[in-house]
Design a protein around this nucleic acid. Structure first.
Lengths: 225, 225
DNA sequence: GAGGACCGATTGTCGGACAATCAGACGAAC
DNA sequence: GTTCGTCTGATTGTCCGACAATCGGTCCTC
C-alpha cells in the first residue's frame, strides 16, 4: 500500500545546483565566465561551503571546469569536445538501437512517447531550451533500450554537456518540424528490425548533428554576442 | 622545450579520497559498512568538511552510497547491478571493437601493451588487486579504440565498481594463466578484422564474466567472511 | 627588457557551532 | 497486544569565521 507516494527531499546544495544549472542553460553566462564562490554565496543567500559543494556537482557533470586556486569557470565546448561527445553518444545509442529486438516493451514505448513529446514541443512552438530538452530526450530513450541504468545516466551527463550548444543550433536552424520528421524516420528504420540499416541511419544522423554543432560552437567562438 | 615536465599537485581532498579508495579495494571494509565523517576526520587528521568532499567524490564514482541524514555506506554490488554494469561495459567495449579498423595506431598499440602487462602480472604471480587492475586495463584499452576520452572515463568508473568483486573472482578461480590466454584469443579475433566475430567473442567473454561475478557476489552475500 | 619582490584577490582547508533528521527505546492509550 | 506519541542520542547538513596557499598582475631594480 502507498507505494506510489513519494516525497522528494531537497537539500540546499541541490537547490543551489539547480539554480546554477538554470542560469547556465538560460544562456546568461558566457563560456569562460568565472563563478566566484563568495559572490554566489551571498547572491544565493547561502554559505560558501554550500556553494562549493554545488559547484563540485556541476564540475562532475562537465558543465563547469574547476581549476585549482583559480576558481570555477563556465565550460566552453571546444570543437574537439564536440567530436568526443558525439562519438560517445554514438556508442551508447548504437548499443540501444542494436538492442531493439530484445528490448523490453516499456523501453520501446518510451521511445515512441519521447518522439511524440518532441513533436508536440515543436508544433506548439516551445522555446529553444525545452525543445532541445525534448530532442535530447529522444536520444536518451534510445539508450534506454539497452536496459542499463548506468548507460542512461552517462547519456544524461553527455546530453547535459551538449544542451547549451544544441539550443544554439535549433535557434540557428529553426527547422524544428523537419528535425522531428527526421527522428520519426529514424525510429521507423529502427522498428523495421534491420539493425545494420538502423545503425547506418543513426550514424548519419549523428554525423549531421556533429557538423551543425561544430559550426555552432565555432560561430559562438568567433562572434560571442 | 620541457614539454615532458609535469608536477601533479595533490589537494588534501584527493589524498583523502585515495586513502579511502585503497581501504575499499583492500577489502577491509565490508559492503554496507558505514563511513562516519567525524571518525574518518580525526583518523585521517583532517577536517570534517574535507572528509565530506572526499566522500562525495567516492559517491559519484559509485564506490559508496550517500543516504541523506544517514551517512555514506560502502556500496554493495547487488546481482542486478552486475548485469547492469556488464551491459554497460558491453556497449562501450563493443563500440571499441567495431572501431578497430579505424582506430589510431597508438590505441591499437595500447591494447597489445595492456595484454602483455596482464600476462606478466599473471606470470609473476601478482596479488589479486594488481591482477584485477591489469585485467580491467585490458578491457579499458578496448574502449580506448573509440578515441573518446569521455567513454574512457565512464569505462574507468564502471571498472571501479567492479574492481572489488573481480578481485574475489580471480581469487576464487585462480586460473590467471588461462584468463590471459582467453584475452589473447579475443584480441586475435579483433585484429582479424571480422567485426561480427569479434563482437560475438566479446559478448561471450562478458557473459562468462557476468556469470562468474554474479556467483561471487551472491557467495559474498551468503557467506561474508 | 628580463628577472625578482611585493600585493590584492581567490581558493583550499580548518575548527567550531547549531539546526534538521534519523533510528531506536520507552511508555501511554485503545 | 498493537499502535501511536514522545523522548533521546547520534549523525549529518549547513552556516560562520578564520587563516594559509596560490594565482595573476604590478612595480621595481638592474
Amino acid at each position: 500500500m502507498y507505494e506510489s507516494l513519494e516525497l522528494e527531499q531537497s537539500s540546499t546544495v541541490d537547490r543551489a545546483a539547480d539554480a546554477l544549472r538554470r542560469a547556465l542553460f538560460g544562456g546568461d553566462l558566457e563560456p569562460g565566465t568565472p563563478l566566484r564562490e563568495v559572490a554566489l554565496a551571498d547572491s544565493l543567500g547561502i554559505a560558501r561551503s554550500t556553494v562549493r559543494e554545488a559547484l563540485g556537482l556541476l564540475a562532475t557533470e562537465g558543465l563547469v571546469h574547476r581549476i585549482p586556486y583559480r576558481g570555477v569557470v563556465v565550460a566552453a565546448l571546444e570543437p574537439g569536445d564536440v567530436h568526443d561527445v558525439i562519438t560517445a553518444r554514438l556508442a551508447l545509442e548504437e548499443a540501444g538501437v542494436r538492442a531493439w529486438p530484445h528490448a523490453v516493451a516499456e523501453a520501446k514505448q518510451a521511445v515512441h512517447e519521447a518522439v511524440e513529446a518532441y513533436a508536440t514541443a515543436a508544433r506548439t512552438g516551445a522555446g529553444p531550451g525545452p525543445l532541445a530538452e525534448a530532442h535530447l530526450a529522444v536520444h536518451r530513450s534510445l539508450v534506454g533500450l539497452t536496459g542499463s541504468n548506468r548507460l542512461l545516466t552517462t547519456a544524461a551527463a553527455l546530453n547535459g554537456e551538449l544542451r547549451l550548444a544544441l539550443a544554439g543550433v535549433d535557434r540557428r536552424r529553426g527547422n524544428a518540424e523537419q528535425q522531428v520528421s527526421q527522428h520519426r524516420d529514424l525510429v521507423r528504420v529502427i522498428e523495421s528490425g534491420d539493425s545494420e540499416a538502423a545503425v547506418a541511419a543513426l550514424r548519419a544522423h549523428l554525423a549531421d548533428a556533429e557538423e551543425s554543432m561544430r559550426d555552432a560552437v565555432t560561430a559562438d567562438r568567433a562572434a560571442p554576442d
